[in-house]
Design a protein around this nucleic acid. Structure first.
Lengths: 204, 204
DNA sequence: CACACAATCCCCTAAAAACAGGATTTTTAC
DNA sequence: GTAAAAATCCTGTTTTTAGGGGATTGTGTG
């Protein structure tokens, strides 16, 4: 008997999954939470085997929650759940300890396969998610430093090097160096494409 | 008896809605489609009273499909369905003839209220959707011309005024004028914030 | 304890964008 | 058919960014 809990703020999704798994005799439905907070509260008195977790939650990012849950309860197998097959989400969930990633347009067969696969300690990626990861493993997301991200956000807000330097209490030339590094990392020709790429990669 | 049809490519959502409405005796479930194409095919031989339509479909935008369906079958009441409470989506659906907009985290009560409201010829906006429309009606989206949009896209791709002028066969000074007008319309200080604002407003 | 890496700072030149004025010719809409 | 809106073009100046170098200091990891 696989004990299943789900956390998703979309009522229709919760209901849909329950309906899809109703006929599965070896899956026990423990219940659902709609916020990260109530999920943590539930876990204090009852531990599921598998946790289906929406990537986008109202009070906290599912990506962060995944890490918290895994640290506190390492035995739980977490499956990420999302409408978006974006490699950034998928990768981050896996990095934070998730064992699987399923898209919300998955069939009941896929869902059951996912649950059974992670129960055996393996990784399950939804077909389309796997394709995305495969396709985008070359077009990797640039790794930027904390300071670079700060500068990037201010650039996107329309601040000039001078304004940024005043805000961060550093020299304008330092800001310029960060800017140059950002352009190089994103392979962007100028600020316009830098901002676009950064937003496309969910970094803003 | 209200005849209901649903178009959404997320299997879990379809199943969830069916489950939520199962107990409603005065709603007849005609079936579901997962693409715009199969939806149109269905409508050729059977007409629902209410059509629940996902805003994001795989083969066509729900926003466009809404217009097509309304033109061909004006009697159908369409309710937009989406995870996102973005005013641009909501407004565009209503402009294209939709009678309602419901978020995917709606409860069964909200959903039933929506279906009954639109059946009476009224407009139904999900609570959170209404708040978004209310809140954002001041922070209006700039109205830009066709040419300005062309230039905007090329700017966001990192092209300079000169490159754009060559691509569009116009003078660099003309491109510069469009650029100035864009900056003014978006109240942006420079290209960086222009691009960010444009993406935030779904114009890119 | 090296070594990489992040963060900081500097110089210089050229290119591009921002700012401030104009002006003319097409379209589009009433 | 006329008036408004869009699209086109111009001449300047100033500010900002892009591109090319180079250098120092601290911090954390193997």
């Amino acid at each position: 008997m696989i004990r299943l809990f789900i956390i998703d703020d979309h009522y229709m999704i919760v209901e849909g999954i329950r309906s899809l798994l109703q006929s599965e005799k070896n899956i026990e439905w423990l219940g659902h939470a709609m916020t990260a907070e109530s999920c943590m509260a539930f876990l204090q008195h009852d531990l599921p085997d598998v946790l289906l977790m929406d990537v986008n939650l109202p009070d906290q990012s599912g990506i962060d929650l995944c890490k918290v849950v895994k640290t506190k309860y390492p035995k739980i197998h977490i499956i990420g759940l999302s409408s978006f097959n974006q490699q950034s989400f998928i990768e981050k969930m896996l990095e934070n300890g998730a064992s699987g990633y399923v898209l919300k347009n998955a069939t009941s067969l896929e869902l059951i396969a996912a649950i059974e696969t992670v129960m055996e300690g393996d990784i399950y990626l939804s077909h389309e998610a796997a394709i995305v990861v495969e396709k985008n493993q070359n077009s990797k997301i640039p790794i930027i430093t904390r300071r670079e991200k700060e500068v990037l956000l201010l650039i996107a807000d329309g601040l000039t090097n001078n304004s940024i330097s005043e805000k961060l209490f550093i020299s304008p030339t330092t800001v310029d160096t960060h800017r140059k590094n950002l352009l190089a990392k994103f392979e962007a020709k100028n600020t316009a494409s830098l901002v676009k790429m950064a937003i496309m990669h969910q970094l803003i």
